[in-house]
Write a protein that binds this DNA or RNA. Structure first.
Lengths: 340, 340
DNA sequence: TAGCATTTTGCTCCCGCGAGCAAAATTAAT
DNA sequence: ATTAATTTTGCTCGCGGGAGCAAAATGCTA
């Protein structure tokens, strides 16, 4: 007694069924669903009609198993408190899907979990792994690569020193020098650098570049403070503790932040807890250009990463057979707004 | 001439290789990697060692093909401008992964794309589809269900009237009544309701509930305004256009927003463009309790959804064989802060 | 219309693993 | 020690489709 009111679970319709219905062989049916296959328009039409009637769609697991191509990429991500992650995901998922790539999303809980996350992806036989998390330092990457079961490992929006990876990122060194120059030009003299987690080796680049460049060109040694995650809430706490009780003389005149997540947290606390005005009492710069940076509330001077270009480049890399590893740096744009 | 400096692509090691290495049969190797299988601890150990040496991990595509269980769920999402989506994704991915579910992420570009997105998921033979997008109205759902090739269709964080779906959501009706009562108690008399897209049939519930309840209990008819997406930037524009030029008498005394994304955009523009104080000149309430709602900048009075409980319930539903469809409503919590 | 080149179709043999059963090995009971 | 009960192991067959080749069908030329 079939349950009429509920749509049936149609998982068991196979190419053989369609073949029988259309009066062709199974292989002709499969060819009808492959874009490069040689098939006459007549049988294509017959198959289309039969497939439509039966509600058939090819099984990508089986296709993947037989062809050794999954058309799946794993996206390993963490750091969900950072609003920029949402932007990156949107851009990547949109462009990858447009090019026919499906995405396996893996939330990498912490550094110890990174290996499991990679293993997870391996078992699905993904064609490539894209890392947009921050937990993947060189040590983790090495063990991951040891047991690599995917063709490409791509680090997105972060530079990597590891020779066996492909990295697609903005040119941090160039960017931070541009920021440093801008800050100095605008007359700021006592910058403080607000950095992310110390463990995040790749991002150290921004801090190091800024501090070294400032020291060499403008003499003084900038103060630096570190937050244990790219989380506005944590940044707010640290900034409050660091700056509370300072007076005009001891307060930095600008807070240069490693990214917008930190800058946003800092802005909130500086205005509402410390009661200071931005940029008059203290200016702020960020990095990433998240959507809210442009809004009326923050008007944050920041550095825009060309995410769309980077994502387009990523799909090009995925499509190419070239398996030589390399890095690719993009140039961003300084977005000057009211905060500095 | 093997390339020594680069880790090999180890995709071709199969259970047969491990079997030969360990001196057992292929099936014993596979059993060693299944948790419910009957295997002696001696051969388990032998297999573990051999697998470790060869770098073997089972192929989940093949396992899925043979067992008709993929342990994969598709997560269909859109509306990336809404910060609450990031929170939902974090919670869902964390809990699903903990329970052994892998996630296929699909960015549903627009309403017309919804069908393709579902098809996409079908072809990977996912065990279930989770919808956290807003594009899925009843019409789209019906065509989706027509060709259903997955066992469960779950609508998360939204109620659905469709009888063939499972929905897990917060009790919007109860919530909006609670908000309406609170607003009235605090002495507000001229609320304006800021709603999301008119097409989003499910969310209409919040607006309708608030407006009807207010009219019935407190006499007056609240003004309502609609924004075409849950995007703070768009909300800001609409609010500015709507409220600009109004004086004390014509200005609403409180802006009740359908969710925090709208409330945040409204807050920014009310403060920085219209130059009004919150809550003295105009108060604001939201819905969702996104992380920034608690921050020093917004201090938003809003309604918290019990996301963790909802996600835990979701994995329970996924695990059960029960395929009767049903809805489950959760009770949230009114978070009273400074904005109202 | 014959003769040949070119498409189109069907087929064999895999891809890597699981269900379910029969044979073998181990353990328990008498 | 012998037999029965139980666990462990190996095996056949199938999951749904792809690569690559041979057979069949079609198009083209003279």
């Amino acid at each position: 007694m079939p349950d009429e009111k509920k749509p049936a679970f149609a998982g068991n319709i196979t190419a053989d069924d369609v073949a029988a219905e259309a009066g062709v062989s199974r292989w002709t049916v499969n060819r009808a669903f492959r874009k490069d296959a040689s098939i006459s328009s007549k049988s294509l039409e017959k198959v289309r009609i039969a497939a439509e009637r039966l509600g058939y769609v090819p099984d990508l697991r089986a296709a993947s198993l037989a062809s050794d191509r999954s058309n799946l990429v794993a996206l390993l991500i963490d750091d969900f408190a950072n609003p920029h992650k949402l932007v990156m995901m949107e851009r990547l998922t949109r462009i990858l899907r447009r090019e026919g790539w499906d995405i396996l999303l893996v939330n990498t809980l912490d550094r110890a979990d990174a290996g499991h996350a990679l293993l997870n992806a391996s078992q699905r036989r993904v064609d490539a792994v894209i890392l947009i998390g921050i937990q993947f330092d060189d040590e983790v990457l090495d063990t991951a690569l040891h047991a690599r079961r995917f063709r490409k490992l791509i680090i997105f929006a972060r530079t990597s020193r590891n020779p066996n990876t492909i990295s697609i990122a903005v040119d941090d060194v160039h960017a931070m020098k541009e920021i440093a120059n801008y800050v100095h030009e605008r007359g700021f003299r006592r910058p403080m650098f607000l950095a992310g987690p110390r463990t995040s080796s790749a991002h150290l680049l921004r801090k190091e570049t800024f501090v070294d460049y400032w020291r060499q060109h403008f003499g003084s040694e900038p103060e630096t403070v570190s937050v244990s995650a790219y989380d506005p809430t944590l940044a707010a706490d640290i900034v409050e503790n660091t700056l509370a009780g300072r007076n005009k003389a001891t307060l930095p005149d600008i807070l240069v932040c490693e990214n917008d997540a930190l800058a946003i947290g800092a802005t909130d606390v500086i205005r509402h807890k410390l009661g200071l005005r931005i940029p008059q009492d203290i200016a702020i710069t960020g990095f990433d250009d998240v959507p809210q940076a442009e809004g009326a509330n923050y008007r944050l001077t920041t550095y825009r990463q060309p995410l769309t270009d980077m994502a387009e480049y990523l799909v090009k890399v995925l499509g190419s057979e070239e398996d030589r590893d390399f890095d690719r740096l993009f140039q961003g744009t300084l977005m000057i707004r009211d905060s500095a």
